[in-house]
Amino acid sequence: MRQAFSKGFIYILLTIGSLLMLLPFIWMISTSLKTPGEVMSMPPTWIPESWKWDNYLKAWEMAPFLRYTLNSIIVVIVSTIGEIITTILAAYAFSRLQFWGRDIVFAILLGTMMVPGEMLLIPNFVTLSNLGWINQYEALIIPWLASIFSIFLLRQYFLGVPKELHYAAKIDGCSNFRFLWSVMVPLAKPAIVTIALLKAIGSWNAFLWPLIVTQSEEMRTLPVGLTAFTTEAGTNFELLMAASSMIILPMIILYIILQKYIIEGVSKAGLKG
């Protein structure tokens, strides 16, 4: 009896908590489907009287969201693929190859993780403007093509693969490169998927860097474009909520489909880091 009572209490607490977590999302979607009049009605309604799907179209047409979306997609895809390639190569070198200076280079790179990224902002801006890359895709993508954090994670995973596999492959005359692509990479697929997903989410949501290195409208990514849109939309909250939904929902869908990788990745990465 007491058991059942405390179980019920746990469910009630967790349900209230989840409602509080979901509320901003529900409120966002609900508002995005209302008429301007209903948005400003008190008391607020949760289910729109008539579902105004064309708010999404209106918001989409009010600002160059097509361009912002394309930019975001280009940046996400290129920087994710690029980071995965550099990560696989470097993690392999740090975990399976023997060479001079390996441990020192690795220690220096790990040390850089202690420095907040905000400190790198200004010198990187100077470097990119010397290269003439400000307001170009290069500035949005190239600095993010490698991550020491991802290298560290994948190296840990590679270290868990039995060394005997490597010896056996060597005796059979398999080259390092072939061994990496046909044995290590398939074995490490879960870790690679996790790294790619975390990168894609981070890249899609990134704000401060794209804000600083883009100047013209046609180079903006979605989050930067959205902050500019707030001035245009003014107090039309139904349009603002529609635009916010367009940025938030793709990542939520990706997360719900692939949450196993994301949640496992976060808990492993967190506790080891």
Binding site: W204, N205, F207, V224, L226, S244, I248, M251, I252
Partner: peptide
């Protein structure tokens, strides 16, 4: 997984 900018709005 939500964009900070979008959810802040």
């Amino acid at each position: 997984v939500t964009s900070v900018v979008a959810i802040a709005i």
